[in-house]
Design a protein around this nucleic acid. Structure first.
Lengths: 169, 169
DNA sequence: GAAAATACGTCAGTCTTGTTGACATTCCAA
DNA sequence: TTGGAATGTCAACAAGACTGACGTATTTTC
């Protein structure tokens, strides 16, 4: 298959996947897949006057309860002002609590309330359901490859954040 | 490895990758990787008073020269008002041309000018370079798995759009 | 040939989410 | 103790998405 276009390394692996056309296909796959990836949570949040930014905040506060605003900033990669607007509404609506730090009173430690955890569950259930379907269809080997490529695609500092989260659990 | 958590199907494949925790890891990998994915073009566009929306339009006009506004709308999944704002600036700046359709004069056919193609090259070079690096690091088997999972993650109509583009080339 | 549907553009207004700038509070180190 | 650094908040603004309404040209349908 694909004779005439296939190159081979000394170890015999195909380099067909490195052609511009193949790369372009990967780019488009990434674009369309990300749309699917966010579609379900977006639908849920639509009615609640929340957006994707709220989802991200909720997700990472759930993963690292008691985290500080600065911590969250580094993970989300937005300005603190941007995050603050989101946090303010979440706190007002009783989904997140903000406690002044014990040792350093400048810091605010963020936690999900029961209501916050409930919404987090609802959102991540939806997202995980799609992920689970995709994983099931693709099979374990494909999933391993999927994760390998995604990780290679990250910036180095994001890779650090990703591993910090992974290893922190 | 990971004894005690591993389930096996009748065909002997591990289901460890379907754990909630594993799925959550995949979700986060997707989040961080997408940031890396868009970082390079974003940097280039920053100075030009263009944004991601312009990049997307340019990308798909390049892939399907002579496409109509309606076509683009379906692929991008935005409203015509939203797309129009972007197209207007691109046409004003001489990156895109809009020709009245020959057979159906209601349609406008969109094409990149030389300047538009030049910018497209610059943008996709940057994005492909990152993709190429990631693919090279991960290897062909991982890439195959990557694409399989991404495709399984798409909505059905996006899958159609994706294949229409692939097969149209 | 008249009416309905389609393709496209535009104006006006809203929402989310990103930005910068200015400012208050707290901590720490000189 | 005082000045700088760090943390977080408030205000104003811009990009880019959305809806709704409307106008125009063209095609299709009856």
């Amino acid at each position: 298959m694909a004779e005439g276009h296939t190159q081979n390394t000394s170890s015999g692996q195909s380099l067909l996947y490195l052609t511009d056309e193949q790369l372009r296909q990967g780019i488009e796959a990434m674009f369309f897949a990300y749309r699917g990836f966010t579609a379900d949570p977006d639908r849920i949040l639509e009615g609640l006057s929340y957006g994707r930014a709220h989802h991200r905040a909720i997700h990472f506060i759930h993963c690292a309860p008691g985290t500080t605003v600065n911590n969250l900033l580094a993970i989300l990669g937005v300005t603190k002002q941007s995050l603050n607007r989101v946090l303010r509404t979440l706190i007002e609506d009783g989904l997140v609590t903000s406690h002044v730090g014990r040792s350093d009173k400048r810091e605010r430690h963020l936690t999900l309330t029961e209501a916050g955890e409930a919404l987090e569950q609802q959102l991540s259930d939806a997202q995980r359901a799609r992920m689970r379907d995709a994983y099931r269809k693709a099979g374990p080997d494909a999933v391993a490859g999927f994760k390998t490529v995604l990780e290679a695609m990250m910036d180095d500092d994001m890779k650090r954040a990703y591993h910090a989260l992974r290893d922190g659990r």
